[in-house]
């Protein structure tokens, strides 16, 4: 669940917007450069945004009565890198606040930082670290998505803790309290999201591997080897 409208004090709304804006600028710059060479990428990006929107309007079956949902930004971070993901996440957050009343406009800066910047950055770092190693592709996708989801909520807790520090122990103990609230639903949720997106990835490898090759997401040999493995298992 994103931070809703009116929950953060005005000053923190400004701070998070100021942090988010340069990242969005960098993302827009990269986006323009990509579009100058490959115009089809715009449709592709739009589709990724819509996909993240749809994913986050899905309620996961394992958690009942919670507003938790997958963030889906892990897949986008792998495909387009963290900065463009920030732009896509910002567009998705705008739609979520206006279509579903998730999140808000003044708190959007804070939500962009948590869902669009920190989560994808961590996910992307994990992906880059594991991409050219022997580590299984599905494990890589699982780790990227689970950590992108988890770090999103860690950042949200930090944002809340900074805005509302505890009287005793300050920001640190306030952070622990907010993390405690989120941990109950978020740790199982991050694992489920990782599993689901890894399964989605398996489906893509089986049905439409050319997408992965075209975007240079994983080395071609690795994809072919995995496909062969899946065919043998079946």
């Amino acid at each position: 669940m994103h931070i809703m409208e009116g929950f953060l004090p005005a000053i923190w709304c400004v701070v998070w917007w100021l942090i988010a804006l340069p990242c969005l600028g960098l993302g827009l710059f990269q986006l323009k450069r990509i579009l100058a060479t490959d115009r089809e990428a715009l449709a592709l990006l739009g589709v990724t945004g819509a996909f993240i929107f749809i994913l986050s309007s899905l309620k996961l079956p394992s958690v009942t009565g919670s507003c938790s949902h997958p963030t889906g930004t892990g897949l986008s971070a792998i495909s387009f890198g963290p900065w463009i993901t920030a732009v896509v996440a910002a567009v998705v957050l705008l739609f979520q606040s206006l279509f579903l009343a998730h999140g808000g406009l003044s708190t959007m800066g804070a939500n962009i930082v948590s869902m669009g910047i920190v989560g994808p950055l961590v996910g992307y770092a994990i992906y880059r670290a594991l991409r050219n190693t022997q580590v299984n592709m599905f494990l890589t996708v699982f780790l990227v998505c689970a950590f992108a989801d988890l770090l999103t909520y860690v950042t949200t807790s930090l944002e809340l803790a900074l805005a509302y520090p505890a009287a005793v122990g300050g920001v640190a103990s306030s952070f622990v309290v907010f993390m405690g609230i989120f941990a109950v639903t978020q740790i199982p949720l991050a694992i489920v999201e990782g599993v689901i997106l890894a399964l989605v990835f398996k489906y893509i490898v089986q049905m439409k591997p050319d997408i992965l090759v075209r975007l240079h997401i994983f080395p071609e040999e690795k994809i072919v080897a995995t496909q062969r493995g899946l065919a043998d298992a079946a």
Partner: peptide, 9 residues
């Protein structure tokens, strides 16, 4: 980007 995301949703 916003218009395309809108349409695709």
């Amino acid at each position: 980007l916003v218009t395309i995301v809108y349409r695709t949703i």
